[in-house]
Amino acid sequence: MFSRPKKKRTEFEATALVHLDALYGAAHRLTRNPRDAEDLVQETVLRAYRFWDGFQKDSNCKAWLFKILTNTFINHYQKQKRGREVLGAAMAEQEATDGVLFHEQAESQRDPEDLLLNHTVSEDVVRALTSLSPEFRLAVVLCDIEGFSYKEIAEIMECPVGTVMSRLYRGRRLLKESLYDFAVAQGVVKRPGDEVTHDSADAGDTIDLDAYRKRRANTT
């Protein structure tokens, strides 16, 4: 049976609201402004409260809340960018994560060096993060800000662990790209030239850990 409202609220506040700062922090990074972050968190919390009776109390409450936050964020994104734009983004994301091989020789030539990192300011990083598509942004926020494991992110984002790794890899790459572009625009670094270090190993890298482990298992 459903729990009584008073008991439910007390239990909810004690168990779920301890994650409020984490939710707010992630929402702030996803939406980029405090007002939207508050709206997103409030909707997440109220939705979680309404469905508190359905939450398995022995499971991971923080991951459950982030799943709702993620779902709410993507739903809002879809409402705002209805139709073809969403389809376009989804297809772009699909293309980016379908395979495990990325041919990014050109991108790898733009690796930011010390100069870039030394001159990067938080505002640029936030701007670069916001320029990522929602799926890449979520993966980076959940891993680099919230410290969720790949498995937890996979559960939150409803996708395989391999896709999480691809989104992280690709998201971080795009983040670097954007930062590099900002730095070039500000005259901090030059356009890629001969002096830029280049890892030939970066080109065509596989980022599928499972594939690596399977290969290893077969060779031992």
Binding site: L20, D21, L23, Y24, G25, A26, H28, R29, P34, E38, V41, P112, D114, L117, T120, V121, S122, V125, V126, L129, V140, V141, D144, I145, R172, L175, K176
Partner: peptide, 20 residues
């Protein structure tokens, strides 16, 4: 270094008391 820099720059603010 890139990962550390990103994590440092992206460290998010806490929820304001008013929002609590």
């Amino acid at each position: 270094r890139f990962r550390d820099a990103i994590r440092e720059h992206l460290a998010p603010p806490s929820a304001p008391d008013r929002f609590h």
